[in-house]
Structures are given as structure tokens and as C-alpha cells.
Design a binder for these strands. Structure first.
Length: 642
RNA sequence: GCCGAGGUAGCUCAGUGGUAGAGCGCGUCCAUGGUAAGGAUGAGGUCGUGGGUUCAAAUCCCAUCCUCGGCUCCA
């Protein structure tokens, strides 16, 4: 009695006394907090059933908070498992059922395959469990008791989980359902609003592809039906931005069965956008001191034996071709060729850093189940470069490289990405101290650049650690685009060396880097980022000219010529269809500017200009329009009214 | 690669044992129009592919390819 916990309650903070043995539930009551999902104790999420010790800072969280949502969804996953137990008459094995970033899932071993049509019936059972408002109790027991219980129920997955638990395992029980779980959980099922089961999938037990395949049910829970509706609307909106859908609608690219899975055919409009991206890329690389090179698509297999790719990634390479008693491979990487260029002369320390860049098209055999539009393909063009430098130049190169990367992405409107440092994998070559050094220099460069990052343990490439930059797609999936990799190994394998100022031959350090990653993937992300409405500088045809009447065709041509003189591509949609129809087409094709010209405009030398996203046009002098749009393109600015 | 769901006209989709459908798009003709679909008419499909069951298969069964959602993987 009389002990104090500090309580943070929204903006106000106060201090609350509590008695020994009092739980957070009682504390919440005292503080007048009605609905809470859990409690953050000095920032750590804790079950409401726990007791404070005194002196800590606590904050009750509800569904509005990220931590609260986590508890809410986690409980929903237990309710799903509870419903599944009824649905399968108890004939099932439970694996795991965590909350995710958006919702939850539960993995089951079931006596038969579940079909999507059954999800609705499961939802109905879930609804009943919620309506019964079953109180959820927590208890713990000894490991031996838990083991005995699981053995009796032949709960083999739970038994395995038990092995990893230190101390007493805890259980959460709601009526005739209980689950081994560290929590935290809500206090009763009635606290849940509406649970929606979203998809069905297979998942390997513990992510091991040699292990058993379980059935995973995904779901999400909300306080109200209205929130669920909003979520579904948001999802539908996101699907409209899907690059595969837009690629079809805007005639950007295709993937054709008879050509091959994961092989992209770029249509004119897609190819024109890509050209603009590549032109910008070349210009910027020249300015940053890169020399561009070009290398073959095929080479003798020996090259990849030397580089180590054959040892480490053969299963991801297309099979060998035998030509004149020599084995060839389609290239999965550009690096060996760049080594050859370096080695074509004796290099001096004065030559370093030496930067070779290539838009190099590579082919990798990706497993069929992983292909995904432009984002995961079998043939793609890397904006690859290899930088050879002296050890003392590494830091500086990395720092300027990060600056270059972020600038390049920002040009295309990407300011929102996650950065990861991938550390040494099990399957590595080289010495540990070199790995350490390389990893530290990557971290230091990020810190100098003031960029936040996460560690991706063991996710490095076999030859060195890397910085990856990941961009999210319209459905919130992350895709690695930019990558910067330090490599002490491949230079050694190719015996790459320079003569230092002391006359000694020394090994340069190499950086592999790709800013876009692959042009295919980057373009896919770009389509989704802009929702297909490309800014005028990227749009293949930023202007459509719509003459009102056939009689205005000549003036339309004059307008087109004026834009062409300024280097702006436009196209005339002749008056064979109604103006309304042609305008609608321009809008659905997400053309930045529709220019409408009739007899009025012809007489006054003006145009009507309607900007994408606006509901009306404005009248302006042709010369002024050309000048202003030229400026917008030169600035690489987003679509905006003129 | 694994689990599940799908592949019908150029596109989006309906048809679930009995002679292949719609809308959009495309062609032709009419209409010459002022800010998101003018009217008429025509062409277009061995229903992913290969087997099987059946008097009869887009429809049922098997295999296979591809796509989608996950899982595993991703130099």
C-alpha cells in the first residue's frame, strides 16, 4: 500500500498508488480507463493480468495504439483457433497463431484441406464466440505438466514449442479452448468487434521447406463493421495501383506464356519511360565519375567458377550450353566482366577509385512460385556498377554512394524506404575480420549520412555484407531495390591488383552497387508509386491534343509542332469520336495534359489545357503553355496545373 | 519447389453435361461534336494444353503449362 506507479494517460501524466497484489486491471479501473488491450510498462508490452512492482512508468494501450492492436489481433487468432476446433470437431493440431503487422494468422494441421468457401462459416462461429463474451484466463504450470498434457493430446507442434521455452510455460484459456501462449491477451472474447478471415495459404512448419506443410488462415479484426469496410475499400484502391493491372491498362509491358514466365516484353509506352529513366541514369553516372561499359550475355562457365557463383548459386543459374566442346552460361551477374576490364591494363593507385557502370541484362532461374509481375522475374537489367578503390577510400566512396542513391530515388519521388544492413551468412567466403571491417564501414557510412537502418542478420551475400534499400509495393510488400555491397573476395579470385605509390602490388576493395536494382523491378515500383499517372518528364506522351472538330485538325497539328519544337512529345486524337469520349480516354490513360482546341482557340491563338486530376480546363496562350510545360519537364516536377 | 485458388473473344467477366454469351475494344457506315462513353452494323473463341469418362465435355476425372494468394528462396 502506498507504493506509487507513474501513469501516463494520453497527454496527462499522474501518479497512482497501488496495493501489493493489485493487477493492472484494477489500476485501469481506478484511473477510469474502460477499454484497454494491454499496458506498456517502461515501454514494454505487458498483460493487464500482471501486477506493477512500483516506480515504473505505465501506459494503457487500446486498439488505437500499435501495441494495443497487436494484443487485439493476437486474441482474434486464438478465437479463430477456438472456432476451428469446433469446426473440425477437435480433430486438428495447433501450430502457431501470432499477430502480424496487419492482422493475424493461425497455422493448423487439419485432417482435410480447407477451401475458401468455408471461411464464411468459420467467421460465423467466431462471431458466436465473440457474442458469448467468454472470459480469457491465464495460468501457468510446470514444464513437466505441460509436456504431459501435450503428449496426452498428441499436440506435437506445441510440444516442440515447449522445448524453446525457459521457465514456466503460460496458457490462455477461454471456455473449452486453451493455448500455450506468452500473451498478452484481451480479458474476454467480447472485447473483439468484427473478425474477417482474409485468405488461406500453405505454410511450412517453422518455415522449413523440408518440414510439414500446414494450412494457414489469415485474418484481421476491427472494432466496428465500418472500420472493416474502410479497410476493404483501401485494399480495393491499392489493387487498382497494381503494376500488373496498370501495365495492361496503360499498355506498358506484357509477359507471355509462349515467350516464357518471368520474361518481360516492353511495349512502346513502357520502353519509352524506361528510356527516359536510363537517359537520366547515364547522365548522372557520367557526372559522378563512372565509365559505362557493355558486356556479353553469355560467357564460358569457367568465369563463374572463378567468381564463385557456380559454387554458391548454381541452382539459380540457367543450365549450361555446350558449344564447340566448351560450356557456356547465360550471365546471372555482370561482375566477372568488369574484373576483366580492370585487369586489361596494369592499374596504378592514381587510377583509383575506378568506377565501371553497366545496364547489364542478366538471367536468373527463379523458382516458379516466386515470379511476380515485374517485381520478381527471370530476366532483368541491373543498373550495375563496380567501384575499385583503396582501403582508405572505401569510407568516402560509401558515403557519396549513399548520397547518390538517395538523390536518384528522390528524383523519382521515392522518399519512403527501409534500409537494412545484411551481415555475414553461414555460407560465406573470406575471413571473419574482413567481414567485420566491411560491415562496420557500411554502418559507419549510414550513420555519417544520417540514415536509419535495421540489421538483417545473416542475409549478406557470400562474398560480403551489404546495404539494401527496400521499397513497398501497393499491397505493402517490400522489394529490395538499391543495394551496396562490399566485396573483398571476388577481386582476389580474379587476382585484381593495382600498383601502389610504394611500388607494391595491392588488392583493391570492390563495391558492387545497383541504385535501381533492376530496371524491371524499379519500373514496377514506379508504376505503383505514381498509380500509373507518371509526371510529365516520364510520361511517354505527356500531351494529348483534342481538336473539337475535324476542321480544327490543322490548328491541332500546329499546336503539336510547337510542342515538338520544344522537344515535347504530343499526339493528336482526331475528331472521329466525340470530345467527351476522347477526353475520357485521355483521363483513363492518365495523360498529364489534355489540350482542347476548337475554332475559338484557333482564332485567338490559345489552347484549353486540362491537367490530369482537374475537373476543368483553363485557357492560355499557346506559347505560354509550351514554355510552362517545358519548365515542368525540365524540373522533373510532378503533374501540376499550368 | 511446396500448399491452395484460377485459366472462356484483344480486355473485364457470365455460362457448371445437350448448337459458345455480354460489355468494352477493333472494322465499316452515319453523326462534326466545347470538357469522363453519339448512333447503327460487322468481324472475332477448336473454352490454356494433352489424355480419359460419356451417345454427347467449356462443364466430370487425370496429367501438364501458366497466372494469382501465401510459404520457402532471392548473388
Amino acid at each position: 500500500m502506498g507504493e506509487i506507479v507513474k501513469l501516463k494517460l494520453s497527454e496527462k501524466s499522474c501518479e497512482l498508488p497501488f496495493k501489493a497484489g493489485e493487477t493492472f486491471i484494477e489500476l485501469a479501473e481506478k484511473a477510469g480507463i474502460e477499454e484497454s488491450c494491454g499496458v506498456l510498462v517502461d515501454g514494454e508490452l505487458v498483460d493487464l493480468r500482471d501486477c506493477p512492482v512500483g516506480g515504473e512508468e505505465i501506459e494503457f494501450v487500446d486498439y488505437e495504439d500499435e501495441a494495443g492492436k497487436h494484443v487485439y489481433w493476437h486474441t482474434a487468432s486464438h478465437v479463430l483457433a477456438h472456432a476451428m476446433k469446433y469446426y473440425m470437431d477437435g480433430d486438428l493440431k495447433l501450430a502457431i497463431g501470432p499477430a502480424t503487422g496487419e492482422g493475424f494468422y493461425y497455422d493448423f494441421e487439419l485432417p482435410r484441406t480447407l477451401s475458401e468457401s468455408e471461411l464464411e462459416r468459420l467467421e460465423a462461429i467466431i462471431k458466436q464466440i465473440i457474442q458469448r463474451d467468454i472470459s480469457i484466463e491465464r495460468y501457468s504450470c510446470s514444464k513437466a505438466e505441460a509436456t504431459a498434457k501435450f503428449k496426452e493430446n498428441s499436440a506435437s507442434y506445441k510440444l516442440e514449442l515447449l522445448d524453446d521455452i525457459e521457465g514456466e510455460p503460460t496458457f490462455y484459456r477461454q471456455a473449452d479452448f486453451e493455448d500455450l501462449c506468452s500473451g498478452p491477451h484481451l480479458l474476454s472474447t467480447g472485447q473483439l468487434g468484427v473478425v474477417k478471415l482474409t485468405k488461406l495459404a500453405g505454410a511450412y512448419w517453422r518455415g522449413d521447406e523440408n518440414g510439414p506443410m500446414l494450412q494457414r488462415v489469415y485474418g484481421i479484426a476491427f472494432k466496428t463493421e465500418e472500420e472493416l469496410d474502410l479497410y476493404e475499400e483501401r485494399l480495393a484502391e491499392a489493387k487498382k495501383r497494381d503494376h500488373r493491372k496498370l501495365g495492361q491498362e496503360l499498355d506498358l509491358f506484357q509477359v507471355d506464356d509462349s515467350v516464357g514466365p518471368g520474361l518481360i516484353i516492353w511495349h512502346p509506352r513502357g520502353a519509352e519511360i524506361r528510356q527516359t529513366i536510363e537517359d537520366h541514369w547515364r547522365r548522372r553516372h557520367r557526372a559522378e565519375g563512372y565509365r559505362t561499359v557493355m558486356t556479353p550475355h553469355l560467357a564460358q562457365e569457367e568465369l563463374w567458377k572463378i567468381s564463385g557463383h557456380l559454387d554458391h548459386y548454381e541452382e539459380n543459374m540457367f543450365p549450361r550450353m555446350e558449344l564447340d566442346d566448351t560450356n557456356y552460361r547465360v550471365k546471372p551477374m555482370n561482375c566477372p566482366f568488369h574484373m576483366k576490364i580492370f585487369n586489361s591494363q596494369t592499374r596504378s593507385y592514381r587510377d583509383l577509385p575506378l568506377r565501371y557502370a553497366e545496364l547489364g541484362t542478366v538471367y536468373r532461374y527463379e523458382k516458379s512460385g516466386v515470379l511476380h509481375g515485374l517485381l520478381r522475374v527471370r530476366g532483368f537489367t541491373q543498373d550495375d556498377a563496380h567501384i575499385f578503390c583503396q582501403p582508405e577510400q572505401l569510407e568516402g566512396e560509401l558515403i557519396s554512394l549513399l548520397e547518390f542513391t538517395t538523390e536518384m530515388l528522390a528524383t523519382f519521388g521515392f522518399n519512403d524506404y527501409e534500409i537494412f544492413v545484411s551481415t555475414r551468412p553461414d555460407d560465406y567466403v573470406g575471413t571473419e575480420d574482413r567481414w567485420e571491417l566491411a560491415t562496420e564501414s557500411l554502418k559507419k557510412a549510414l550513420e555519417t549520412a544520417g540514415l536509419d537502418y535495421k540489421i538483417d542478420p545473416g542475409e549478406g551475400v557470400y562474398y560480403g555484407p551489404k546495404i539494401d534499400l527496400k521499397i513497398r509495393d501497393s499491397l505493402d510488400r517490400e522489394w529490395q531495390c538499391s543495394t551496396i555491397q562490399v566485396d573483398f573476395n571476388i577481386p582476389e579470385r580474379f587476382d585484381v591488383a593495382y600498383v601502389d605509390n610504394d611500388g607494391e602490388e595491392k588488392r583493391p576493395i570492390m563495391i558492387h552497387r545497383a541504385l535501381f536494382g533492376s530496371l524491371e523491378r524499379f519500373f514496377g515500383c514506379l508504376v505503383e508509386h505514381y498509380g500509373g499517372a507518371f509526371p510529365p518528364w516520364l510520361a511517354p506522351t505527356p500531351i494529348w491534343i483534342l481538336p473539337i472538330d475535324s476542321a480544327n485538325q490543322e490548328y491541332a497539328q500546329k499546336v503539336a509542332d510547337k510542342f515538338a519544337e520544344a522537344g515535347i512529345n504530343s499526339r493528336i486524337e482526331p475528331a472521329t469520336d466525340s470530345l467527351g469520349k476522347r477526353l475520357r480516354l485521355a483521363i483513363t490513360q492518365k495523360i498529364p495534359y489534355a489540350v482542347i482546341v476548337g475554332s475559338d482557340e484557333e482564332e485567338s491563338g490559345k489552347i484549353e489545357l486540362r491537367t490530369y486530376g482537374e475537373t476543368s480546363s483553363n485557357s492560355l496562350e499557346l506559347e505560354i503553355a509550351v514554355e510552362k510545360i517545358s519548365q515542368i519537364i525540365a524540373d522533373r516536377a510532378p503533374i501540376k496545373p499550368v
